[in-house]
């Protein structure tokens, strides 16, 4: 049996009609709805693929306040997960990525009663200011091989390896698709462009069955839910939350922008005097000044 873990995150819904801001320009969290983050949802889809294709069992984990249950529930709809884990403790509050990874490392360690998790999926990054660092840091702490920006993968259960394609796009360079092979266990962050491909009728029928089951399970999701604190995750309080975070947010300010609305200036090109200031401006901008 393939064991799959997924790390997800509850995030503000930034879509119009759901997001609200305070008058000082900061996010109004009370008025903004929270949802399973879109990148987390993609990670869930990848885990679900393992279930349909390889009969995997799925365990989902998230660190957050009790309300993060919502995200677990939504993730169960997507994955038909067997297990939901909420890592929730006042001590975890204010954690940066290193302190978060510390919690998630132990969280993954507790999945399925402490068995080996063959693949852990997480989203590419969160949309509310997170950094795309949590996945790789958790992987490193777990000692798992890390694969980022994965767009496609297949598992060879006999050889216990995963064969994955990952996207590498670097500034000014051609995009590269790199195909790699890695032994299990492996930690994968899924690229936003990932799409599960189910290409036989039987897989599609199985997928329907699991989806339906997932919806059903999620109606009674608490039955699948385990809540962990720092204590039963065996965590050192000094290494989690604000106490365990190397970084702090020192200051938040508006990014100064010179420009407001455009006040259009109409130029008649037939008079060279009109053109000259424009030329200077273009050259300045071309030089990046």
């Amino acid at each position: 049996m393939l064991n799959v873990g997924v790390i997800i995150k509850l995030e503000p819904d930034f879509s119009e009609g759901n997001v609200s801001y305070n008058s000082d320009g900061t996010l109004n969290r009370a008025e903004t709805k929270n949802i399973l983050g879109p990148h987390s949802a993609v990670a869930c889809n990848a885990a679900f693929y393992c279930k349909v294709k390889y009969g995997a069992q799925i365990s989902i984990g998230t660190m957050g306040p009790p309300i993060a249950e919502t995200a677990l529930r939504q993730a169960q709809v997507l994955t038909n997960a067997e297990e939901l884990n909420l890592y929730s403790d006042r001590l975890f509050a204010g954690a940066d990525t290193l302190a978060t990874a510390e919690v998630l490392k132990n969280g993954v360690g507790k999945m399925f009663g402490g068995g080996i998790i063959d693949i852990v999926f997480s989203g590419h990054r969160a949309s509310d200011g997170e950094t795309g660092q949590t996945g790789p840091q958790t992987a490193w702490k777990l000692g798992y091989t890390f694969l980022g920006n994965v767009i496609e993968f297949n598992i060879d259960s006999d050889r216990k390896v995963v064969i994955a394609k990952r996207l590498i796009s670097l500034q000014g360079m051609d995009t590269i698709i790199e195909e790699v092979e890695s032994p299990l266990p492996v930690f994968i962050t899924i690229d936003p462009s990932y799409r599960s491909i189910y290409n036989t009728v039987s897989q599609r029928l199985l997928l329907n069955k699991f989806r339906k089951e997932g919806r059903k399970r999620s109606e009674d999701y608490r039955q699948f839910l385990k809540v962990y604190t720092s204590k039963n995750l065996d965590l050192d309080p000094k290494r989690v939350g604000l106490q365990g975070s190397p970084t702090i947010v020192y200051r938040v300010e508006k990014i100064p922008r010179a420009r407001t609305n455009r006040k259009t200036e109409i130029i008649d090109p037939s008079n060279p005097n009109n053109i000259m200031p424009l030329i200077t401006k273009i050259i300045q901008l071309a030089r990046g000044k």
């Binding site: 009609g17 320009g25 609305n261």
Partner: peptide, 21 residues
């Protein structure tokens, strides 16, 4: 609402959208 920086306009727009919803 004009005469405000674009980002403020956008935020007011989004907040109004939320309230209208």
């Amino acid at each position: 609402i004009k005469d405000l920086p674009k980002e403020d306009q956008l935020k007011i727009h989004l907040s109004a959208s939320k309230l209208m919803k």
